[in-house]
Design a protein around this nucleic acid. Structure first.
Lengths: 235, 235
DNA sequence: CGGGACCTGTCGAAATCCTGTCGTACAACT
DNA sequence: AGTTGTACGACAGGATTTCGACAGGTCCCG
């Protein structure tokens, strides 16, 4: 029987011993309007968590001092129930983490795509914050994306998107009507460290267009020399 | 974050001397929209129960100080009729009998699967809620699952499911039309501590399909690269 | 106890689908 | 027209999914 208050910004604590990674996440979160701070060790994480009282934590499992599990344990012991999203290396540890997601927390394998991390953070927040679990639906014109059912519709027409197409479209819709450069799309939707000097983005956009601009007026617009937007009337 | 109304939520007290386990249960319950607190010893449990006035209690039988039965006795003596679900170790066969004869409402053997625990808690709550005991039936299209009789039907056809199949299907139906990842299914339906990096989920889904998608249109859908959903084909 | 039926998870192989690279045709701007 | 940026067909390597076959376990019944 809790009462939740209105809070201005989501507070995020990012814990990763690799500063570039921690910063990357924090930066993206700030850009989303969140309050984000970083910690590069377990001790620091616990210290900063105490003052900062984050709403959510991103926690790398491989830390120099206390490891991720230890941090979680001590966080919990200190009475906080903050939801946590774990980061793990591609191999081994993933198994051990698995058990943790049961609670509703989540985890991602490195290297991850920034947008995917943000999407999971939003999901975890949404679920842990509210008693009534409300759907998350994005709309642009008659284009609709339901993030729970992963259903995408243009009008009544149900579209079947591949994972990559889905992610690119979600990013475009979420930022609509902002124009995004191909580099931004690449940086957010593909795993960090993706070597692609190629034209993947153009490719995926092309495939997307075929699927959703087949019916009705185009919603994905090219801004020559810059990037793409999803929006209704292109002036 | 967001503003939520004050809502009557189920209040759950989880008593287990192993913090990760207590935490696991509490977290899952919260994600179901419940209010959950934990206690790691008998004394603490009694203390917290007094303020918190839980609607239901999950009680490990092996506690450091007072044991589970002691806690139950003292709870009862203090006048509360709150329903209790016991947790016991796998070997304690004697515990089971004793547990039920000594006033517990149900029990579960460790390690358990979180979905099963939640299902039992819901059942106990439903029963204790009042004499007006209504059945719990899940429906998706012409697929029906009666959680009391464990009857599953597709149309008129009665299906015979194995325990694992039943649990997987229940989880899918309960969350329908949300798409669930294989990891989520594994984490919720299998016992915590199950190391399976295998393809059991795919296997069980395959077996389920043979049984319930034999008749009529498919209800279990694959979302490639993501997971599975149960829902009626959206045109 | 012993036999048998059933349940579960592992393995592997085949089928299917997804993705990024290349290359060329096309479009837009000067 | 020249130059630069964009669209997208085609292809091959990979990744994912499906499911048959099998073996260890469990439980029940005689």
């Amino acid at each position: 029987m809790t009462h939740y208050e209105r809070v201005e910004k989501v507070r995020l604590l990012v814990v990763d011993d690799d500063p570039p990674i921690a910063d990357l996440v924090a930066t993206v979160a700030r850009y989303e309007g969140w309050d984000a701070i970083t910690a590069n060790s377990g001790e620091e994480a616990l210290r900063r968590a105490a003052d900062f009282r984050p709403d959510i934590v991103v926690l790398d499992l491989m830390l120099p001092d206390v490891d991720g599990f230890g941090v979680l344990d001590r966080l919990r012991r200190s009475g906080t129930m903050v939801p946590v999203v774990f980061l793990t290396a591609r191999d081994g540890v993933a198994d051990r983490v698995a058990g943790l997601t049961r609670g509703g927390d989540d985890y991602l394998v490195k290297p991850f795509a920034v947008e995917e991390l943000m999407a999971r953070l939003r999901t975890v927040l949404r679920r842990s914050a509210g008693p009534a679990f409300q759907r998350s639906v994005l709309r642009v014109g008659d284009l609709m994306m339901d993030e729970d059912t992963r259903e995408v519709r243009r009008g009544d027409k149900l579209l079947t998107l591949t994972p990559t197409e889905y992610e690119v479209l979600r990013y475009l819709m979420r930022k609509s009507p902002t124009v995004l450069t191909k580099a931004q799309i690449l940086d957010h939707v593909w795993e960090y460290g993706f070597g692609g000097r190629s034209n993947v983005v153009e490719l995926v956009v092309s495939r997307l267009r075929r699927k959703l601009d087949a019916t009705g007026e185009p919603l994905i617009h090219t801004v020559r020399g810059f990037g793409y937007v999803v929006r209704q009337a292109a002036e």
